[in-house]
Design a protein around this nucleic acid. Structure first.
Lengths: 134, 134
DNA sequence: ATAAGTGTACTATACACAGTAATACACACA
DNA sequence: TGTGTGTATTACTGTGTATAGTACACTTAT
C-alpha cells in the first residue's frame, strides 16, 4: 500500500495515514474483510516508525473502521456502520464554517464551493452506501 | 471584544483569534477602518499573553486584512481585496475532500452538507462582497 | 516444540512548537 | 515629558510527534 505522506505538514503522520486509509475504503480500493499490511510491513514501505503505524491502526479501530486480531493481523471491518456523534458533528459544522470563511478571503464564492462539494461527493460516495442513511 | 477561545483545542490560540476576527469582519461587526483593541488590552480581556495576540495580529496583517500603524494601533483594512492563491486553494479543496470523508463516516450525506453550506454562506456572505469577484 | 509473523506495551530520547514571562525598543500623540 | 501603541528579543516550561530499542502475548505453520 502506497500513501502520500508529507512529513512537513502540520497534521501528524499517523493522522494522515488514518485519513488516507479511510479514503481508500470509501473508494472501495480496500474492501471489507480485506487484510491490511502489517504494522512492520507498512512502516517499512512508508519509511516511518512502526509505532506511528500502530497509532494510526489503533485510531482506525477506535472508530470501528478496522479490526485487529492478535497474532493474525488487521482487517477492514466487515460492515462499517456510520455512527452519529453529536460532538463530532458539531466540530464538522464548525470546520465547514471556517472553510467557507477562508474561501471567502480567497475570492471563492458559494457557487464554486457547492460545485466542488458535488464533484467530490460523486467521486467518493458513488460506489458505496456509507452516506446513505440506515 | 469578546472571543470564544478553547485552550484545549488542537488549533493554536493565535489561530483561533485569527479565525474569529476574520469572521467578525465578514459579518460586518468589525467595519473597515475600525480600530481593533490594542495588543495589551485584548490580551487582558482574553486572559492570554500579549505575544499570542501580537502573533495573531501579524498573521492578519500578512493576509492584508488589518493594518498596523506604529504607535497608533491596528485597524481593519479600508478595502479587503480577496487574493487568489493557488496553493491555498489546493489546500482548501483537499480540506473539503477530507471533510466529506469524515462526514460520510458520521452518516452525513451530500444533501445535508450542501444544505449546511448554503445556510452558512447566506449567514456569512449576505452583507458584503468579499466573495464576489472583482 | 519451534520458529516466524502478528499486534501491543514500555522506556528513553530528540525535536518542534505553543504559550508564558519579562524586558527593552521605536514611534505617535497630547 | 509621559502615556499608549506595536514590535523584538531572550529564556523557560509544557506538550505532542516521531524515532529507537526492547520485550511480551498471541496465531499460524513447520
Amino acid at each position: 500500500m502506497i500513501l502520500n505522506l508529507d512529513p512537513r505538514s502540520n497534521t501528524p503522520i499517523w493522522e494522515q495515514v488514518v485519513h488516507q486509509i479511510k479514503e481508500l475504503i470509501l473508494r472501495e480500493i480496500l474492501l471489507p474483510e480485506e487484510k491490511l499490511p502489517s504494522v512492520r510491513e507498512l512502516s517499512g514501505t512508508l519509511l516511518i516508525n512502526p509505532n506511528t503505524v500502530s497509532k494510526a491502526y489503533q485510531e482506525l479501530e477506535r472508530q470501528g473502521i478496522i479490526e485487529t486480531l492478535r497474532g493474525k493481523g488487521t482487517f477492514v471491518s466487515a460492515s462499517i456502520i456510520p455512527k452519529a456523534d453529536d460532538q463530532k458533528t458539531t466540530e464538522l459544522k464548525q470546520q465547514l464554517k471556517q472553510l467557507i470563511i477562508d474561501a471567502s478571503y480567497l475570492g471563492i464564492d458559494h457557487q464554486t464551493l457547492s460545485k466542488w462539494l458535488k464533484n467530490f461527493s460523486e467521486e467518493l460516495g458513488g460506489k458505496n452506501s456509507h452516506a446513505e442513511s440506515e
